[in-house]
Amino acid sequence: NQASVVANQLIPINTALTLVMMRSEVVTPVGIPADDIPRLVSMQVNRAVPLGTTLMPDMVKGYP
Results as ranks from 00 to 15, higher is better:
Asn1Leu: 14
Gln2Ser: 15
Ala3Phe: 09
Ser4Ile: 01
Val5Lys: 01
Val6Gln: 03
Val6His: 02
Val6Met: 05
Ala7Trp: 02
Asn8Cys: 04
Leu10Ser: 12
Leu10Trp: 08
Leu10Pro: 13
Pro12Thr: 08
Ile13Ser: 12
Ile13Cys: 05
Asn14Ser: 08
Asn14Tyr: 10
Asn14Phe: 07
Asn14Ala: 09
Thr15Met: 09
Thr15Ile: 08
Ala16Pro: 15
Leu17Lys: 00
Leu17Glu: 01
Leu17Val: 03
Thr18Ile: 07
Thr18Arg: 10
Leu19His: 11
Leu19Met: 14
Leu19Ile: 15
Leu19Ser: 09
Val20Tyr: 15
Val20Met: 08
Val20Phe: 14
Met21Cys: 03
Met21Leu: 06
Met21Asp: 05
Arg23Leu: 06
Arg23Ser: 08
Ser24Cys: 04
Ser24Leu: 06
Ser24Glu: 10
Val27Arg: 15
Thr28Val: 09
Thr28Pro: 00
Pro29Val: 10
Val30Thr: 12
Val30Tyr: 15
Gly31Asp: 00
Gly31Leu: 01
Ile32Leu: 07
Ile32Tyr: 01
Pro33Thr: 10
Pro33Trp: 07
Pro33Cys: 04
Pro33Asp: 11
Ala34Met: 07
Ala34Pro: 05
Asp35Ser: 15
Asp35Lys: 10
Asp36Pro: 00
Asp36Gly: 07
Ile37Ser: 04
Ile37Gln: 05
Pro38Thr: 10
Pro38Met: 09
Arg39Phe: 10
Leu40Tyr: 03
Leu40Ala: 00
Leu40Cys: 03
Leu40His: 01
Val41Ala: 05
Ser42Trp: 12
Ser42Arg: 07
Met43Cys: 05
Met43Pro: 00
Met43Glu: 05
Gln44Thr: 11
Gln44Tyr: 15
Gln44Ser: 11
Val45Gln: 00
Arg47Phe: 08
Val49Leu: 09
Val49Arg: 02
Pro50Asp: 12
Pro50Trp: 07
Leu51Glu: 13
Gly52Lys: 04
Gly52His: 08
Thr53Trp: 09
Thr53Cys: 05
Thr54Ala: 06
Thr54Tyr: 02
Leu55Ile: 14
Met56Lys: 10
Met56Ile: 06
Pro57Met: 06
Asp58Tyr: 15
Met59Ser: 05
Met59His: 12
Val60Leu: 07
Val60Asn: 01
Val60Gly: 01
Lys61Pro: 10
Gly62Val: 05
Tyr63Asp: 05
Tyr63Ala: 05
Tyr63Phe: 09
Pro64Leu: 15
